[in-house]
C-alpha cells in the first residue's frame, strides 16, 4: 500500500508534470532544430515568436468567449489556435522576406544571422508588449481536471491523490498529434523529403532541382505552427507572460542541443530529458521517500536538491555535460 502511495505521489508530482512540460519543450525544440537544420542559424527570436503566437491566441480566445462560443469541457483556446498559427505564419514569413533573405543571398556567416535574430527578438518583444502588455494573462477555461485528487482517492482508497489536469491531458494528446503529423510530412510527402534533402546537403539538393525558396517558406510555416501550439499549451498549463516565454529560450535551446541540433527525433528526446531533470531535481522528494522507505529511514528534510528558482541551472548543467562529453548531442546532430 505504501509503495502504491509512493508511486501515485511520484506520478502526481513528478511524472505527469514532467511529461506535460517535456511535450511543450519538445515542440519548441523541434522549431529550433528545423530552423537550424534548414535555415542554418540559431534563432534567438524563438521565445518571442512563441510569445507573439500565444498572444494572438489569447486575444482570439477572449473574442470567442465574448461571443459565447466555447468547446464545453475543453479550453476555448484550442479553437483559436488556427488564428494564432496564421498570424504567426504571416509574421515570420514577412520577417524572412524583409530581413533574413537578404543575408541568405549574401551567404552571410551563421553568427551574423544570430545577431540579426537578436534584432528581430527586440522587435517581436516590443510588438507583444505594445499589443497585449507585459503582464500575466489567463485564458484557460473549461473543465479543470480530468481526474481530481479527491475523486482518485475515493476511487482507489489510497491516501495519496492523483490529479490530472485537463491542460496536461490536452498537452500530451496535442503534442502526439502534432509530432505524428510532422514526421508524416517529413518522411512521406514530396515537400517534406525535399526539406530533409536540403538539410542534409544543400548543394546536392539544389542540383536536383529543389526550390530553396519553397523549402524555406514551408519551414517557416511549420515552425510557426509548432511554436504557436507549444506556446498555447504552455500558457494553458501554466500561465502566459511574455517574459517567461523569452526565458523559455534557454530550456528549449538546451533541449534541441542536448538532443542534437538539426535532428527532430533528438529534439523530442532532449525536451523530455530536460523536463524530467528539471522537475526531478527541483522536486522535494520527502513525501515519495517517506512512503517508499521503511519508517526508520524516512527523511526529515525536504530532500529537495535545488529550489525551483534554480531550474535554469539544471537545463544548463545538463547542456554543458552533454556538450563536453558528446558535442553533437545524444542523437547525432549536425554542425554547420
Amino acid at each position: 500500500m505504501d509503495l502504491l502511495n509512493a508511486i501515485v505521489a511520484l506520478a502526481n508530482f513528478v511524472l505527469i508534470p514532467a511529461v506535460a512540460y517535456g511535450s511543450q519543450l519538445a515542440l519548441g525544440a523541434l522549431g529550433v532544430t528545423l530552423i537550424y537544420g534548414i535555415l542554418r542559424f540559431s534563432n534567438f527570436a524563438h521565445g518571442d515568436t512563441m510569445a507573439f503566437g500565444t498572444m494572438v491566441v489569447v486575444l482570439v480566445t477572449w473574442w470567442l468567449q465574448s461571443l459565447g462560443i466555447s468547446l464545453g469541457p475543453l479550453p476555448t483556446a484550442l479553437l483559436a489556435i488556427p488564428f494564432g498559427i496564421a498570424a504567426t505564419a504571416v509574421l515570420v514569413l514577412a520577417t524572412d522576406r524583409a530581413v533574413y533573405r537578404f543575408y541568405r543571398k549574401q551567404k552571410a556567416k551563421p553568427v551574423i544571422l544570430v545577431i540579426v535574430s537578436i534584432g528581430v527578438m527586440f522587435i517581436y518583444n516590443g510588438l507583444t508588449r505594445v499589443i497585449l502588455g507585459p503582464d500575466d494573462q489567463r485564458f484557460a477555461d473549461g473543465e479543470r481536471f480530468i481526474i481530481s485528487a479527491r475523486e482518485f482517492k475515493a476511487m482507489t482508497g489510497l491516501s495519496e491523490g492523483l490529479a490530472i489536469r485537463t491542460t496536461q491531458g490536452i498537452t500530451v494528446v496535442t503534442a502526439i498529434i502534432v509530432v505524428a503529423l510532422l514526421f508524416w510530412f517529413l518522411n512521406r510527402t514530396r515537400t517534406g523529403k525535399s526539406m530533409r534533402a536540403y538539410s542534409d546537403n544543400e548543394d546536392l539538393a539544389l542540383l536536383s532541382g529543389i526550390n530553396p525558396e519553397k523549402v524555406e517558406r514551408v519551414t517557416w510555416l511549420i515552425v510557426a505552427a509548432l511554436i504557436t501550439v507549444a506556446g498555447v499549451l504552455y500558457g494553458l498549463d501554466k500561465s502566459y507572460k511574455p517574459f517567461t516565454y523569452f526565458q523559455l529560450l534557454l530550456p528549449i535551446f538546451a533541449a534541441a542541443i542536448v538532443g542534437g541540433l538539426g535532428n527532430p527525433l533528438g529534439a523530442i528526446l532532449g525536451g523530455f530529458v530536460i523536463a524530467f531533470s528539471e522537475v526531478g531535481i527541483t522536486y522535494a522528494w520527502k513525501k515519495v521517500l517517506g512512503y517508499a522507505l521503511p519508517d526508520s529511514l524516512a527523511p526529515d528534510s525536504l530532500v529537495q536538491l535545488l529550489s525551483t528558482d534554480y531550474k535554469f541551472a539544471v537545463s544548463f548543467v545538463i547542456l554543458v555535460i552533454v556538450l563536453l562529453f558528446k558535442p553533437t548531442g545524444l542523437m547525432k546532430g549536425k554542425a554547420v
Partner: peptide, 27 residues
Amino acid sequence: TALGLRSDYLAIATLGIAEIVIAVLKN
C-alpha cells in the same frame, strides 16, 4: 568549460550562466 564549443553553443552557455548568476543573487 565552454570556450572549446562552437560559437552558438558558447552563446547559449553564456546565456545560461547569466540566468544562473541572477538566480543565485535572488535566492
